[in-house]
């Protein structure tokens, strides 16, 4: 039986090139290239590795975003995904994580059946790490976040994962269908292939709006339905540069540290 995987991916501004408007204090999006969110690329790569091992695997990538997010889905197809769907509608604009997970859960429901949902841990623009877990709750399936190692049983009914903690990991066995979020330690994403690019650009990518998703713009998705709002954004004042203290011995380093702290009247 075909093993069905849904990968959730987000188009984000390349944070290496990010600039903040000094007056408005918001991100300058103009001229900043958009990229596939890093953790999502790890999620897709893990799905592709399953497909490499079991060719009878079907990978659908789901994204929510403006129409130009189609480019991100082309990239995912060119990497080897089988199918892609974009949730895009003015009514979805301004959604917070709760509203976004409503829309994505509805999209995944509409796809009809899945064994595994893979998402990235978090997006580099919002850094909330909330959408994946919220989605799993709404779909009523178990979840494991921060997956850094992954092994699927031969019967594909259960998966053993290592969940990264700050000082180690948890070893967890989970039954499918389930939702996992990937971190960069999981793998190294592959490149698009040239042949894949030529197929992906001409592939049909359905765009689903609020009506197709069956979500209510007044209560479930969009700015007005979002229970949280951005109150204010600002650029933190940069702290001074850190200093590395070097010395021949621990005592020598400690001495230098004390001299330095005293000279700054800290102690």
């Amino acid at each position: 039986m075909t093993f069905k995987i849904v990968v959730c991916a987000k188009q984000v501004p390349d944070t290496n090139e990010i600039k903040i408007d000094p007056v408005k204090k918001t991100l300058i999006r103009e001229g900043v290239p958009s990229i596939l969110n890093h953790d999502d690329a790890n999620a897709l790569e893990e799905a592709l590795k399953i497909k490499d091992k079991w060719p009878d695997t079907h990978i659908t990538v789901v994204s929510m975003g403006p129409p130009q997010a189609k480019d991100l889905l082309i990239e995912c197809l060119a990497m080897g995904a089988d199918e892609a769907v974009l949730a895009s509608d003015r009514a979805l604009g301004g959604s917070d994580t709760w509203a976004t997970s409503n829309a994505l859960a509805a999209a995944i429901d509409k796809l009809g059946g899945y064994d595994l949902i893979f998402a990235g841990r978090q997006a580099i623009d919002g850094d909330t790490a909330q959408v994946g877990p919220q989605m799993a709750e709404k779909l009523g399936i178990p979840q494991v976040t921060y997956v850094k190692e992954f092994e699927i049983d031969d019967d594909k009914k259960s998966i053993t994962v290592k969940r990264a903690l700050e000082d180690g990991y948890e070893l967890i066995k989970i039954k499918t269908p389930c939702m996992l979020t990937a971190i960069k330690e999981l793998n190294t994403p592959r490149y698009m292939s040239i042949g894949g690019i030529y197929e992906a650009v001409s592939a049909e990518i359905p765009v689903w709006g609020a009506a197709e998703l069956g979500v209510d713009p007044d209560k479930e998705v969009g700015l007005d339905a979002s229970p949280t709002n951005v109150y204010r954004s600002f650029t933190p004042v940069p702290k001074g540069q850190g200093v590395m203290i070097e010395g021949d011995s621990e005592r020598d380093i400690a001495d230098k540290l004390i001299v330095s702290l005293k000279s700054k009247h800290v102690i």
Partner: peptide, 26 residues
Amino acid sequence: ELGLLGIPFPKEWGGAGGDNLSYAIT
């Protein structure tokens, strides 16, 4: 493996199905 050595040739022969401009860019 990524198809960079067969860009401007049809897929039926194992190529990437691309064009000569893509090859030049590569």
